[in-house]
Design a protein around this nucleic acid. Sequence first.
DNA 1: CGCGTTTCACGAAACGTTACATGAAATTTC
DNA 2: GAAATTTCATGTAACGTTTCGTGAAACGCG
Lengths: 331, 331
Amino acid sequence: MKKMSTAPTMKDVAREAGVALGTVSKVVNGLPVGENYRIRVEAAIEKLDYQVNSYAQGLKASRTHSVAVLLPNTFNPFFADLAYHLNLALQKRRYKMLLCCTAFNPTEEQEYINMVRQNKVDGIIGLTYNPDLVVEPDTPYVTIDRYMGPGIPCVASDNYAGGQMAAEKLADLGCKKVAFLRIGSSLTNEPNKRRSGFENGCLARQLNYEMKILDDGDPFDGFVDFLKEHFHGGKLDFDGLFCVTDNLAFQIMKVLESMGVKVPEDVQIIGFDGARMFGDGSYVCSTIVQPTEAIAEMCVELVLMDNAILRPPLVCLPVSYACGGTTNESM
Amino acid sequence: MKKMSTAPTMKDVAREAGVALGTVSKVVNGLPVGENYRIRVEAAIEKLDYQVNSYAQGLKASRTHSVAVLLPNTFNPFFADLAYHLNLALQKRRYKMLLCCTAFNPTEEQEYINMVRQNKVDGIIGLTYNPDLVVEPDTPYVTIDRYMGPGIPCVASDNYAGGQMAAEKLADLGCKKVAFLRIGSSLTNEPNKRRSGFENGCLARQLNYEMKILDDGDPFDGFVDFLKEHFHGGKLDFDGLFCVTDNLAFQIMKVLESMGVKVPEDVQIIGFDGARMFGDGSYVCSTIVQPTEAIAEMCVELVLMDNAILRPPLVCLPVSYACGGTTNESM
DNA sequence: CGCGTTTCACGAAACGTTACATGAAATTTC
DNA sequence: GAAATTTCATGTAACGTTTCGTGAAACGCG
C-alpha cells in the first residue's frame, strides 16, 4: 500500500494482485476469468478493502444502479408504505433509491424529472399529478396509478374491483342509501375507476347511491355543505359512505363527529388505501386495502426489465377489504 | 448538431459556442468568465438542451450533490416527517436524497453505510440503532438522536425539556400519580433524557411517579402485565401516563380501551414525537411535539458545512406540547 | 510435429467532467 | 512608450471505470 489517504482503485488492486486492470474489472463484474486469477484478485480486493467507484462506473457504463422515486410526500400512510416497499424491493436487487417528494406540485414534478435526468438514474418510478410530464425517452419510466400511454407501464390496484367491493360491503352491512365522495384531480387516471366500480356495485345490489365529486382546487367545504344538505332532524340521509381515500374518510369522520353523527352506528364509512397507524396497528377506518408491497415489487420489476418489448401497458393488482379500528365491522 | 441519439456534452456546447471546453465548465459552475463568452455559452446550452452529467462531475470533482438518509422506515409518522423535511431541505440546496430504510436492523444499517460508501455521497444523515457503526471517516456524518462522539454532530430535540414538560402538563391536568413507560434500546442516546426530564419534572411538582422500562427485545406484554398489576376494582392506580413515543402511547391506549379504562376521563396520556394522521390533521394523542422541520434543516446545514471545525457535537432544538384528538385537553 | 484455431489476459482508449499550467492580450506603472 | 503586471480563454491532464482490439499461450487435428 503506497497511499493511505485516498481510497484504493482498480489500479491498486491490479498492482497488488499482479494482474491487468481489465482483469480486475471482469472479476468485479462477475465476468468469466481464469480461476487462479479470480482468486488472486479477490484476495487483493479483500486486503485493500476495495470498493468500486460507482461514479466512474456510471460515467463509463451508463448503468448507475439507482432508481428515482417520485411521490407527493411521505406522510400519507399510503405513500409512506409505497416508499418503504419500493426501497425494500430496490435494495433486494442492490439498487439505490433516490426519493423525490413533489408535494402534488406539477412544476416540482417536472423539476425533479429534469434533475434526475442529469443524474442518469437507471429508471424512474413516479406517482405524479402533472398530466403532461416530459420524461427522458431513454430512461425507463413506470407510473403508479397514472396511465400515460402505451410505452409507459402503469401499475395500479384493481380500482374497479375495489369500488365494487366497497358497494358490496356497504350492502352487506345493511345500508340502503349510500354516497360516493371524491376529491382529487379530474385526470383520467386509474383511481377514477373506483367510481364506476362503485356505481356498478350499487346497481348490482340495488343500492341507492349519490355522488359528490370535488376537483383538486375546490375547498373541502364542498363536502361539509353536501353533508349538511343531507342532514335533517339530527339524522343523515345516508347510512353508508364510500370515500375515495382514507385521508378523505378520516376528514369526513371528523366532520360527522362534530355534527353528532356516530360512526358506524348512524353511518358506515369505507375508505380506500389501507392506511394504518404506525404501519402496523389498526386501520384508520374500514377500507379497501391496496397491495402496496405487490405494487412496489411490480414497479421495480418493470422498471428494471431489460426487454422493453415485454413491458405491459397496465398492471392491476388485487385489493382486499379490512375493518377499521381495533375490532371488526363495528369500527 | 451532428448526433441526435446521444445526449449533448460540454464538448458539443463548446463547439456550438465556439469557445474552449474549460470556458463552458466555468459558465456551468458559475465561475467568473467574460460577459460576451457567457452569453454565447448560455445560448448554446439553451439551444442544445445541455444537462451536466453528474457522474462525470462526481468522478472528477468528488462532489456529487447527493446525501444519503438512513431511517428505520417511512411509515412511522415521525420518520415520515423527517424524511419529508429532509427532502425539502436538501432540494432547496439542489441536493438529491438517497433514502435507505434500515428496519432497525444493525446489520442492515452497516450494509447501507457500506453501500453508500461506494456511491461517494457528499454526506450521510442517520437515525440509526447500531451502536458501533463504522462510517467512512472522510464523509460528513450527522446523526439524529444518537450521540456517537465529538467528531460526529448529533441533532436532537430537547428531550430533557420534553420530559419535564410532560410532567408539568400532567400536573396541570390534575394528575396525582403518574407513570413513565419506555420501550427501546438501552443505549445512551438522546431520547433517554426524556426520562430524567420527566423525573425532575415530577419532583418539582411533587408528583408521585413510577417507571416501567422495557428493552428492545422484550415483548410488549410487559406493559400489559404492568398495567394489570396496577388495576384494582375496575380502576387504574395511575391518573397519568407518559409514554416515550406516540407509537407506544397509541398501543397503550388500545390496551386501556380493552380494559375498560377511559382516556382521558380515567387517565391522561401524553406521548412523544407529535405524530399526526396524514401529516396535517389532528395529533394521534396528546404529545410532546418534536420540531421535525427544524431538525431536518439543521441536519442538512451541518452535513453540508464546509468547515468541519465549526460542527457542534450536539444541537438540541425546542419542543412544544400539543393536545391529541380534534379538540383540546380533553383529548 | 507443424499448422490453424480457440482462449483469455493485457493494455490502451474512451466516457464527460474539472483543475491547472500556459501564454496571449489588455491594463497599469514610471 | 516600453516594461511590468494583471486578466482570462485555452488546451491538456487527470478522475476510475469499461470495452475492445491485440497477441501470446494453449489446444486440437491431420
